[in-house]
Write a protein that binds this DNA or RNA. Structure first.
Lengths: 133, 133
DNA sequence: CTGCGTGCAAATGCTTTGCAAAGAC
DNA sequence: GTCTTTGCAAAGCATTTGCACGCAG
């Protein structure tokens, strides 16, 4: 019955750098974005390690995967309440938005039963608006 | 200046089978779904041909790509007005929904500018509800 | 020390592409 | 007959995994 009693997971320079990326940026990140941020503090992190750690952090409940239409997956800190996202069509950065539209139960044909929904807003983020002046 | 004056595209058994899949099912289809339907009338269609034709049909404006979070792309007949989709969490089929939620402009932080949105409802479709009784 | 975590490279799985042969017109 | 389209197999990409070594505890 091998209980993973104590440690089981070790702290490594790479793992710390990966966690720090989320804490410091405060927004959903793609694997490639995580790699870029992690490189700042741990120059030798490999993309394989990023993928492995993202998966582990999701399994242990520290992160959740954020799927967006036509985009590579992003990951964000878990534990937040229901919210949606904003994708900048220029720089491709994703931001979290508070709240949700009210009557989301739009005309559902008879016989269908909806349990949840995903909403994504597209546009330009503050950092990119100058480029489109 | 090679004008593609006349023909340029030829009608083939495979292409007809692919177009028929959309006309007959009336819902967004993934490449694999298209392949399955096409096999009914053209037993030897290859997946490469499906991908090539989907791309061509999008380029000539007959189809549009429908991207959904965490899902392979679907394709649907173009020319419809603004609408959203429903994904059955059981059979993975996608359906088109009419209309849109009204005040979609939820709390957007200052400095952001939104131009469009994507909405997907998740649930169970009529065909799958019996399985969940 | 022990063995988990890492980098590298090979292996996937989905989609695209090169090429010779089949087929549309 | 000419030139597009197809099927097959190889090539691409993003992501996952096997393996031997390095490092945390």
């Amino acid at each position: 019955m091998k209980l993973k009693s104590t440690v089981a997971t070790r702290n490594t320079r790479q793992k710390d750098a990966i966690r720090a990326a989320f804490v410091e940026t405060g927004r959903p990140l793609s694997p490639e974005e995580v790699l870029s941020y992690a490189h700042r503090t741990a120059a030798d992190v490999s993309i394989a390690t990023v993928y492995r750690n993202l998966k582990m952090l999701v399994e242990e409940g520290w992160l959740i995967a954020v799927q967006l239409p036509g985009e590579p997956p992003r990951y964000e800190l878990s534990g937040k309440e229901h919210h949606h996202h904003f994708l900048c069509d220029d720089c491709r950065k994703v931001y979290e938005l508070e709240g949700c539209v009210p009557a989301i139960e739009l005309k559902l044909p008879r016989g269908f039963r909806a349990f949840s929904h995903d909403l994504l807003l597209h546009g330009i983020c503050p950092a990119c608006i100058p480029k489109h002046a």
